[in-house]
Simulated assay, not measured.
Amino acid sequence: MSATFSHTIIAAADSAKSAQFYVDILEAEHTQSWGFFSNIMLDEGVMLQFASPPPTFEIPPVHKAFICTDEHFRRAVSLLDERGLDYWADPQRSRLHETNTEHGGRGVYFLDPSGMYLELITKPYL
Rank of each mutant, 00 (worst) to 15 (best):
Q20T: 10
Q20Y: 04
F21V: 11
D24F: 05
E27M: 05
A28F: 00
A28C: 01
Q32V: 09
S33M: 01
W34Q: 10
F36Q: 14
S38T: 13
N39Q: 06
N39L: 01
N39Y: 00
N39S: 13
L42K: 07
D43Q: 13
D43M: 07
G45P: 00
G45F: 02
V46R: 06
V46A: 05
M47L: 03
M47K: 04
L48P: 02
F50I: 13
F50Y: 12
F50C: 13
S52C: 15
P54H: 14
P54I: 13
P55A: 12
T56Y: 14
E58H: 14
I59Y: 05
P60A: 09
P61V: 08
K64R: 12
K64P: 00
K64I: 13
K64L: 14
A65M: 02
A65T: 03
F66I: 00
T69P: 03
T69D: 08
T69N: 03
E71N: 10
E71V: 09
H72E: 02
H72K: 06
F73T: 02
R74F: 04
R75F: 04
V77D: 08
V77E: 08
L80R: 06
L80I: 03
D81C: 10
R83Y: 07
R83F: 05
G84H: 07
L85F: 03
Y87T: 04
A89Q: 08
D90Q: 10
P91M: 08
P91R: 09
R93E: 10
R93N: 03
R95F: 07
L96R: 14
L96K: 15
E98Y: 12
E98W: 11
T99F: 12
